[in-house]
């Protein structure tokens, strides 16, 4: 266990030294806070845009505070997800390509610790960034639109955070399987998009899909409860464990890029 902490501390140190621990949370805060502001100012922006025929009445749906929070989550679901995939895409492949994994894995280090320490670091920065960003979104929504119950916000953040963690885990898996970091990010984001679309198209057949997490998070915000939550959560957690196991297994077979 102490060895695992040594590995985790190294990942943590890397997050600090590379500046990720600063810029990722800042970007998430900006993402989370700007959505309520944009929503609030949208009528003015449109009115100010001019070149509307005289007397045009713009009918904008009235936004509720919960509705704005759902929009904020959508921001995290696109740009936020992209950033998580981008910062995780080289987690394993960069080490294998540069040869540092070969330096570390010839030491009596458990392959599972090597992977899960990286995974835990990914979860840490995701949780910090999303937590701060969503908190900022919550604060700005409360200031501009009225408050959303803390319980509903917290519940939805857990569900949505699980989705982010799931995609981050998939990125690390692809980062282990593939040589190219870009290919890993692309595959992970593609898989996430496919899963979301498939879940929307086949709601019955894929009622358990992790792709449903975003929908559940929105439902939690709007109505205070999300039905059919536990199958989705369990399947997601099982998938995360399976992805980690597959990554560890693959790394054990190919600790370094093999050269003849």
């Amino acid at each position: 266990m102490s060895q695992w902490f040594v590995l985790y501390r190294k990942e943590w140190l890397e997050l600090i030294r590379s500046g990720k621990l600063i810029w990722v949370p800042v970007v998430f805060i900006l993402l989370g806070a700007s959505q309520p502001i944009v929503s609030y100012m949208l009528p003015e922006i449109i009115a100010g845009a001019g070149n509307m025929p005289e007397g045009t009445v713009i009918e904008l749906p009235t936004l509720t505070a919960s509705g704005v929070m759902v929009q904020t989550l959508q921001q995290f679901g696109t740009l936020g997800l992209l950033i998580i995939a981008l910062i995780s895409m080289g987690t394993v492949s960069n080490e294998r390509l540069s040869g540092t994994s070969a330096m570390i894995l010839v030491k009596p280090v458990a392959y599972s610790s090597f992977v899960t320490a990286k995974w835990a670091a990914m979860l840490t920065i995701t949780a910090i960034s999303f937590g701060l960003g969503y908190g900022a979104g919550w604060y700005y929504t409360a200031a501009l639109f009225g408050s959303v119950s803390l319980l509903a916000a917290a519940g939805s953040s857990l569900l949505f955070g699980l989705w982010l963690g799931f995609v981050g885990t998939v990125t690390i898996l692809f980062s282990t399987l593939l040589r190219s970091a870009a290919a890993a990010a692309f595959s992970a984001l593609g898989a996430a998009a496919l899963l979301s679309i498939a879940t929307t198209l086949l709601p019955k057949a894929l009622a358990w899909s992790p792709g449903k997490l975003t929908e559940l998070a929105a439902a939690q915000l709007m109505s205070g409860h999300a039905s059919g939550l536990w199958p989705v959560v369990s399947i997601t957690i099982i998938s995360i464990i399976a992805a980690l196991a597959l990554a560890v297994w693959h790394l054990r077979q190919h600790p370094s890029i093999e050269a003849v």
Binding site: T100, M103, K107
Partner: peptide
Amino acid sequence: VPAFYNWMTGREFLIYAGRLCG
């Protein structure tokens, strides 16, 4: 071709390696 974490100092890497070896 030994590879290192370039953002570490030489001493940090050695300590890290030592800790990993128990």
